[in-house]
Amino acid sequence: MSSIADNIGSVTRRIQKATLDAGRAPDSVGLLAVSKTRSPADLRQAITAGQRAFGENYLQEALDKIEALREIPDIEWHFIGPIQSNKTRQIANSFAWVHSVDRLKIARRLSEQRDRSLPPLNICLQVNVDRETSKSGCDLDELPALTKAIAELPGLSLRGLMAIPDPAQSADELRLSFRKLATALNDLKTRYPDAGPLDSLSMGMSGDLELAIAEGATWVRIGTALFGSRPAKS
């Protein structure tokens, strides 16, 4: 059975090949290890293999891991799950990135509650790119107004967009979903050049990272291909 270190090496090679095939700079795509339900021991194995960016979906589980691994100074924690209003203070001050901001109310709370001694919180706006009723995220047509409003909030750095397209789609449909997100980001850069860096596309997972990179992903969120199948919930 492959080790976590072996898996990280394999996924890294996939990312490097896809990046090269897309004619992009070698360091233009980051590997975000989706570590929900994984133990601190699993994360330590990944860290030993050189992984530093970890994405968590569940706040309390994430806080427990952050505490367990506190002695390792250069871990970059990303929150990628749905955000409840009563959890924003801890999210604002425990993470470097939040990929799942989908409404102005949440952005305002993160802005107000981010400790001003910390660097600005990097955020991505989550877009329901395929308008799935079961998915979180704003609609594409809501992005301009949301971007304009968030650009005025202190303590935040608007980095880009995130989406979770339906993995059951065909390769052509997935590619179109990724392209819609990339096009939306380019439109925002043109309309609001001072809104923030707007340099990030968080899209692509274990089964479709090559398609996402071909369409401009800068973060691919990989869980199963690194850690194996998630354990069944008790």
Rank of each mutant, 00 (worst) to 15 (best):
L140D: 08
G155D: 13
L104H: 15
R108M: 00
G160V: 11
P120H: 10
C124K: 00
Q113N: 10
L158D: 06
E112D: 13
T147I: 04
Q126N: 04
L146P: 14
A149V: 00
I123D: 14
D102M: 01
A145C: 06
S100M: 10
L110H: 08
A107L: 08
I106Q: 06
L118M: 12
D141I: 04
S100A: 12
I150N: 12
I123T: 11
T133E: 14
V129Y: 00
D130R: 14
C124E: 05
L153I: 08
P119N: 04
L153V: 08
L140P: 11
R114E: 06
A151G: 15
L110D: 09
T133Y: 02
L153M: 12
L153R: 13
A149M: 09
C138M: 11
S117G: 12
K148P: 00
D130F: 06
T133L: 12
I150Q: 14
R108L: 02
P144S: 15
N128G: 11
L118G: 00
A149I: 03
S134Q: 14
L118F: 02
L110T: 08
R109V: 03
L158V: 06
S157K: 15
T133N: 14
G155P: 14
S157P: 14
L153F: 12
L158K: 09
I123G: 15
V127C: 01
Q126F: 04
V127Q: 04
L118V: 04
K148M: 03
C124G: 03
M162Q: 10
P119V: 10
A151T: 10
P120D: 05
V101S: 02
S111E: 04
V129C: 12
C124D: 00
E142D: 15
E112Y: 09
L121M: 06
N128F: 02
E112G: 01
R103N: 10
G160R: 08
P144F: 01
L146R: 06
L146I: 07
S136A: 13
S117E: 09
R114C: 06
